[in-house]
Design a protein around this nucleic acid. Structure first.
Lengths: 184, 184
DNA sequence: GACATATGAATGAACG
DNA sequence: CGTTCATTCATATGTC
């Protein structure tokens, strides 16, 4: 249905049909909001899957530059993408964890040590391994209660020297993506 | 399992018509997407009317659990429901407000049975009153809150010449009616 | 059955 | 980083 596009607030004459396939900027040159192409999403996802979670400014810059080949994109888009993707992965996991009908405790510890080269491309300083502690229980369930002393407020906890890393058991069933990124 | 859509990105591709597995109704049990039963909707609406707008993760869990009695439901459904309901109410109100000269529609409410105790059940920390801080001005300033040196050009012209806030006509101060739900 | 609307789901952007 | 808002996509439902 039509929105409140009756006058103001319509900062951009966005085209309704977004399903413009893989047309990079086909969705309108004057986009009000970044609309990633399938290639871009594919690449970002691959990077994420490779373990990249919080790309540095430099990494973001590089990624953005490369992705611009597939369509209009800005650095902040990349930044936001990773922020959102990471946040939602957690959020989703949390929301699903408790209403899971079939209480199946399955820790999938088998994973392929396949090429992580993709993430390596953008690596500049830190290994940025996936050091996520699987949240079986919501830590911060109640409105308040933010135990500052328990918060691992580490800005530098990226070292993760001895932290054991566990991969997400999410369904990362991805096709044998022949990603190469030779331009890097 | 009740799989379905959980998939991340299935957009972009103009894949019209994703198999004609158009399933049945609420009782059909084969849903690509959650189809709330009338009881579920009624309860959710009642909660919303009671003042609940953005339930916490914890509340969502409880609500979901209780609603599961009436049919298949997941936490994320509850989450999305409130998200959408709130957004659309706001959207509707916004649409009406700007050229509100004679609009008599004003929406009607078919509810006469109010309950505050209902919302109380799920209340955990604060009286989630409809205290919504309308954004009158875009706090979108330049070179501000740059995450990690990232330069986010907030060139987004979030023209917020929007309307001013209008207090909810929906009353949240219902009399302490005794509406008890059996399962609670 | 096409069309219009209601609504579940997703996600880009941004706030605190 | 967790949450929230806005917008859009996709599908269910209702009407003719």
């Amino acid at each position: 249905m039509d929105e409140g596009m009756s006058g103001f607030l319509m900062r951009s004459g966005s085209v309704r049909g977004k399903s413009g396939s893989t047309a990079s900027s086909a969705t309108g040159t004057k986009c009000g909001r970044w609309n990633p192409t399938t290639e871009q999403v594919k690449l970002l996802t691959e990077l994420f899957r490779s373990g990249l979670r919080t790309p540095s400014t430099d990494q973001i810059q590089k990624i953005s530059t490369q992705l611009s080949f597939y369509g209009k994109i800005e650095s902040k888009n990349v930044f936001y993408w990773f922020q959102n993707h990471k946040a939602r992965e957690r959020q989703k996991r949390r929301k699903v964890s408790f209403d899971d009908k079939d209480v199946v405790i399955r820790r999938q510890n088998s994973f392929n040590t396949s090429s992580q080269s993709l993430a390596d491309m953008y690596r500049v300083s830190e290994p940025d391994r996936v050091i996520e502690t699987l949240q079986l229980f919501p830590i911060n369930s109640f409105g308040e209660s933010e135990p500052e002393n328990l918060r691992l407020h580490g800005n530098e906890c990226r070292d993760s020297s001895t932290m054991f890393s566990c991969t997400m058991d999410e369904e990362i069933e991805h096709p044998p993506l022949e990603l190469r990124l030779s331009f890097l």
